[in-house]
Design a protein around this nucleic acid. Sequence first.
DNA 1: CGCCCGCTTGAGCCGCTTCAATGCTCGTGG
DNA 2: CCACGAGCATTGAAGCGGCTCAAGCGGGCG
Lengths: 254, 254
Amino acid sequence: MTYFPSSLPGGECPNCGFKAWSRSANLASCDSERLNDRIDHRRLVKRNQYLNRAGSKLSSLYVIYSGFLKTSITDDGGREQITGFSMAGELVGLDSIGTGKHQCDTVAIEDSHLCEIAYSDFARLSCDIPSLQHHFHRMMGAEIARDHGIMLLLGAMRAEERIAMFLLNLSIRFSARGYSETQFRLPMARQDIGSYLGMTVETVSRTFSQFNNLRLIAINGRYIEIRDLPQLRQLIGDRGTRDPLPRRAGSGAN
Amino acid sequence: MTYFPSSLPGGECPNCGFKAWSRSANLASCDSERLNDRIDHRRLVKRNQYLNRAGSKLSSLYVIYSGFLKTSITDDGGREQITGFSMAGELVGLDSIGTGKHQCDTVAIEDSHLCEIAYSDFARLSCDIPSLQHHFHRMMGAEIARDHGIMLLLGAMRAEERIAMFLLNLSIRFSARGYSETQFRLPMARQDIGSYLGMTVETVSRTFSQFNNLRLIAINGRYIEIRDLPQLRQLIGDRGTRDPLPRRAGSGAN
DNA sequence: CGCCCGCTTGAGCCGCTTCAATGCTCGTGG
DNA sequence: CCACGAGCATTGAAGCGGCTCAAGCGGGCG
């Protein structure tokens, strides 16, 4: 598979994140230019570096040009829950719109290039440009819908189903970006996958091994090949064959 | 405790949901009037009646004037996850903004009065009235932040902590509406609580009983009194006393 | 009044966590 | 160039928390 270029050219990126993003918003070209003028195309975040910290003030929105980020919340007791992984083309920072303060930590899990726009500029523009505003609403709505899906996963699925969903979700997103839908690299640590899916590292690892033995996948460290996409899909919600009752809730010990 | 009036007066509600809602948006009174003109103040939904069905087209947004609703998603396999309970003053229908189609079923768990505004009207108005738009964004952002909190609950908390969070959350919301923060009625079935919190009815019931025996609460059917608010708060994230390690992930069997 | 449904409680089991040990990869320095 | 250590991943063994199955109870509604 191919990778994004590791560095950006001088003044402007050839395929700026916001540009691509605003293409899908169907902006008129003059509006697209106005948006483009306000964007800083060169923000670089290195691996393990924080983009946003929980509690800090919302200042900018970002579209990822290349790389991978994780977003997490931590409660008073120190428990961490990863709420999502973001990849190229995706918008980061929406959780802070409500309060004006970031609710989440956002950290790069690989060196990442971002396109940045000041939230104040964005808000002003979106007042002027209805289709931009509409697209923005779509993004917010999509985030809500996505979160609901994860709530279903966390509240009602067993370990194998969670892993299957996780892999299929990545497959779809890679595929949508022109990469292979069956072979890719998992950029995040097992620990992070576990936090995201509400299970321990060990269970993540064991489930991967199990899928590997069943020839559903071939996994080698962070490189993975999905060998039986249909079966993997069937595994979700296919609780009829192995278990006649719809499953609910948690899991084993805690 | 007091209850909302069970019927609405003729043409307009004295304390319309949207009116209260727009008050917190700091609208100019003329703008508030423009909003008010577009609102149907008389929508009634009876217990167990659907307000929205997953897959149906988004047509209106609602602010609850009185009553209680639940919102849930169901996957292909028939698994249901309740994603939230909504009470007076809260906005319903945000999950559909992204796609224009409802992702969730919304059902009244008691007879409820709603104030309705056509989404198209709302969208038009919010273009004209920046503070309305801003408030709308705040609501969307708040929903995202709320969902992240539930993801933390579902992904990283044990049964007792989930129940404690659930009760404290209700306590805060009732309190914010002028009701007692320690005595209230749970309008939803145990089953629904279980679905929302990612656990079975039995575990919900057992945890209530356990809290009851510990004198943390006094529970009788759907009537509950919180007898030790501070202790209940401590129970969350106070995993240091009884368990030296930060807990992660699922739970018992599945 | 009687039925149905929602809630509670008990007993046993299972899946996931916990604890522990080993292997692997990569970056660092001798 | 290789030795070494740190962090990540895998695997095994044992325990426990919440699920499953089952039975009993109470209250609301027809």
